[in-house]
Simulated assay, not measured.
Amino acid sequence: MSFINDQEIILTESELRSIIGYPSEIVQQKSISHLDEHCRDYIAKSPFLFISTSNASGKCDVSPRGDAAGFVHVVDDHYLVIPERRGNKRMDSLCNILSNPEVGLIFLIPGLGETLRVNGRAFITKDSELLKSMAVNQIIPTVGIVVAVEECFLHCAKAFKRSGLWELETRIEKEKLPSASKILSAHIKLEGITSEVIAANLEEGYAKRLY
Rank of each mutant, 00 (worst) to 15 (best):
V75Q: 09
V75R: 01
V75N: 01
D76E: 02
Y79A: 06
Y79S: 15
Y79K: 13
Y79R: 11
L80I: 13
L80R: 02
V81I: 14
V81E: 05
I82P: 04
I82D: 02
P83W: 01
P83S: 01
P83L: 05
E84T: 10
E84A: 14
R85P: 07
R85G: 12
R85T: 06
G87K: 00
K89F: 15
K89S: 15
K89P: 06
R90P: 04
R90D: 08
M91Y: 14
M91C: 08
D92F: 09
S93Q: 00
N96H: 11
L98N: 03
S99P: 01
S99A: 02
N100M: 05
N100K: 00
P101L: 04
P101M: 02
P101E: 03
E102A: 12
E102P: 04
V103T: 03
G104P: 15
G104S: 12
G104T: 01
L105S: 03
L105M: 03
I106G: 02
I106W: 05
I106S: 12
F107D: 02
L108A: 12
L108I: 11
I109N: 01
P110H: 03
P110Y: 00
G111I: 02
L112P: 00
G113N: 04
R117N: 12
V118G: 12
V118A: 11
V118D: 10
N119I: 10
N119L: 11
N119D: 11
F123E: 13
I124T: 13
I124F: 08
K126D: 15
K126H: 14
K126Y: 13
D127W: 08
D127P: 14
L130I: 09
L130Y: 04
L130S: 07
M134K: 00
V136F: 00
N137R: 09
N137P: 00
Q138Y: 04
I139H: 05
I140G: 11
P141T: 08
P141V: 08
V143S: 14
G144L: 06
I145Q: 03
I145Y: 04
V146H: 01
V146E: 07
V147N: 06
V147E: 05
A148M: 07
A148S: 14
A148V: 11
V149N: 03
C152L: 07
C152K: 01
C152R: 03
H155G: 09
A157E: 14
K158G: 05
K158L: 12
A159W: 11
F160M: 15
F160W: 04
K161C: 13
K161M: 15
R162D: 05
R162N: 13
S163N: 08
G164D: 13
L165I: 11
L165M: 09
L165T: 11
L168F: 11
R171L: 14
E173I: 08
E175P: 03
K176N: 15
K176R: 05
L177H: 07
P178T: 06
S179K: 14
S179W: 10
S179Q: 14
A180M: 11
A180R: 08
S181K: 04
S181M: 06
K182I: 09
H187N: 13
H187R: 12
H187M: 09
I188Y: 06
I188G: 03
L190F: 10
L190V: 07
L190E: 15
L190P: 00
E191P: 04
G192N: 10
I193G: 04
I193A: 07
I193R: 01
T194E: 02
T194M: 11
T194A: 04
T194F: 10
S195H: 13
